[in-house]
Amino acid sequence: MRPSRKAPAGCSFEGWFLVSRDIDTKTEGSAFLREKLKKLQDAYLARLPEALATLQKLSSALAADPDAEVVVADLHRAFHSMRGTAATLGLPQISSEGAIGTELMASFKSLTPDQRRQAAAATLHELAACTARIEAAGKAAMQPADPEKD
């Protein structure tokens, strides 16, 4: 039986990576699906640097104007869809980072303009760290699977 991938709400995501390695052990489902999944995973990981570049561009835009509604909304949406898509594609670590980014942007969104200016530096710092972790997770996922698996 494989360990549950669902983290209880509010728990930290540390140690997540260990659990995430079991993705390839998923045995239920057809060969067709597994093959398709592998292809989509690869495509997603290949596209990840581009997505990260977009995140960085949006972050700079946010630094320039913490009150830019459109930028805040775009960042929120980008993380949110990362969280969802990565989860379905069996990339839980990227998904959980996406969740962290979503949370960050959701709380930033709810601030008043004054509060935003105050919080901007801290939020940007967290965003950068989050983006870096996504990059690392993406690279790790691209490594060939452990020899003992498959």
């Binding site: 489902g29 699906l33 596209r47 869809s81 898509t85 379905t88 594609l89």
Partner: peptide, 17 residues
């Protein structure tokens, strides 16, 4: 789905079913 990869994945699951 606006994300083509996610759409592909959902479609794959459905087609498999």
């Amino acid at each position: 789905d606006d994300d083509p990869l996610a759409a592909e994945m959902t479609a794959a699951v459905l087609e498999d079913a």
